[in-house]
Each structure stands twice: as structure tokens, then as C-alpha cells.
Amino acid sequence: MPSFKRIAAILLRQYYLLRGSAARVVPLFAWVTVDIVLWGFITRYLNSVSHAGFNFVPALLGAVLLWDFLTRVMQGVTMAFFEDVWSRNFLNIFATPLSLGEYLTGLVTSSIATSAVGLVVMVLMATLAFGLSFFVYGLMFVPFILILFLSGIALGIFGCALVLRLGPAAEWFVWPIPALVSPFAGVFYPLSVLPTWMHAISWLLPPSYVFEGMRALVAHREFSAGLLAVGGGLAVLYVLLAGWVFSRVYRRAVRTGLIARYSAETVN
């Protein structure tokens, strides 16, 4: 049975670290704010030059907002994990009754809190400054956010596994993962512009379903709830898969002695 106290311990640690640490708090909203400002003006410009009557704000600015949310969720998980990497805390934390499930749940819960900060700031910014209206998406906004949240969690846990496997320097692998995924996920353009081989990858990515669905809603085209459900199913699957990969990597680290001697980076 998972212990609420143990999960709370991980959360409390993040709270202590965030409290009064500008280096940790500012990135929760600063970069996403910059993104919203940038794309806010880009959409404004596009609206002024295109005479098609197409409104870029919900299609493009909304997509950037949702994508940045996924990124924040992922980084919320990896950021909490990196705290243990940076403070060389693995031995202390894993030589306790804490289970992997509790540990990962703690990371995920803390990501809910930190990514919510970014989301709120982005929504305020996009609606107040650039007139983005969430009524266009209607209730579908909820499953959109949920699927992107799960995708962010999956990427985050996978990123943690990568760093646990390859050592602290693999952080540099982890930060650009969202940028690597975004061309396939159709954040900025419909999947129809992509060559067919890229489609195959796109349909394996839950965010693609969200962004396609979102564009359908905005353009008042037919919106398929069934397709969105597929995206949701995939997202759940990836969260489970990421958890499985992390536990495999962890078990290997316990076998090779890496948990006890993480500074060695790789122990064969």
C-alpha cells in the first residue's frame, strides 16, 4: 500500500527548495511567458496579412500554449528528479522504505503543482493580452489538457530513466526531447503537410491527436472523439511504459552498484 507520508515527503522537499529560490521559481513561468508573447505577436501578424478570415489565435497560439504546458509537465518531473541527482541523494533516499512507485508518484505530484503555475500564467497572458478564447475548444479543453499532461509525465519519467542510466551529463539529452517530438506532433501545422513516413510516427504520439482535434474544432470541421480517445489510450500506455523502463533501469543500477556510486556515471 503506498504511503501518503512518503509521497508527501517528496513534495515537501520540492516545496522547501522552491520557496525563496528564484533560480527554481522563475523558470516555472518565465520561458513560457516569453513564448506566449512571441507567438501572440506572430499570430497577430499572420491574422493581419492573411485575408482568408482564418483566425490564427486559437489554432496557433492555443497550440503553442498547450505544447508549452506539456513541456512544463515533463520538466516538472525531471526537475524534481534532478534535485536528487545534484545533491547526490540516491543512497539516502533509496536505502529507505520508499518504493519506486511512491517516489515516481511524488515526482509526478510535484510536477502537477509546478506545471499548474506555468499553465495559469500562460492562460492569463494569452487571454488578456492576445484575446485567446477557450470557448472555441469548449469542454474538449479538459481531455486535451489531460492527454498532454499524461504525455508530459511519460516523457518526464522516461527522461529520468535516461539520466539514471547514463549519468548526470545525460541531462543534456533530456532538455531537448520536447523539441525533438514537436515536428511529429503537428503543433504548428496540420499533419497533412508532413510526408507519409512522418505520419506513421505522428500517429504514435498522443499529442498529435490533441492538435489535430483542436484544429478540427477551430475550423468547425468534424471532430472525432473516438480518435481523441485513441490518443488518450496511447498516453496512458506510455506512462505505464515509462514507469516500466524506469524500474528496469533502477533494477539494473541496483545490480551494478550505480545507485550506491552514482558519481561513477556508468558501471558496467
Binding site: 507520508k5 515527503a9 522547501y16 543512497l91
Partner: peptide, 23 residues
């Protein structure tokens, strides 16, 4: 000796966190 508690937390914070982990 080679497993100091996280240096970016205070004595009390560390004890509280590990106290929760040990329930």
C-alpha cells in the same frame, strides 16, 4: 561519510523529510 544529507536543505527540513519517508 560519503552520504551526506542534501546540502541545500536545513537540518530541520532534512530531518522532517526523512522522518516522513520513514513514516
Amino acid at each position: 561519510v560519503y552520504a551526506p544529507l542534501p546540502g541545500n536543505l536545513t537540518v530541520y527540513q532534512n530531518l522532517r523529510i526523512f522522518g516522513l519517508i520513514y513514516a
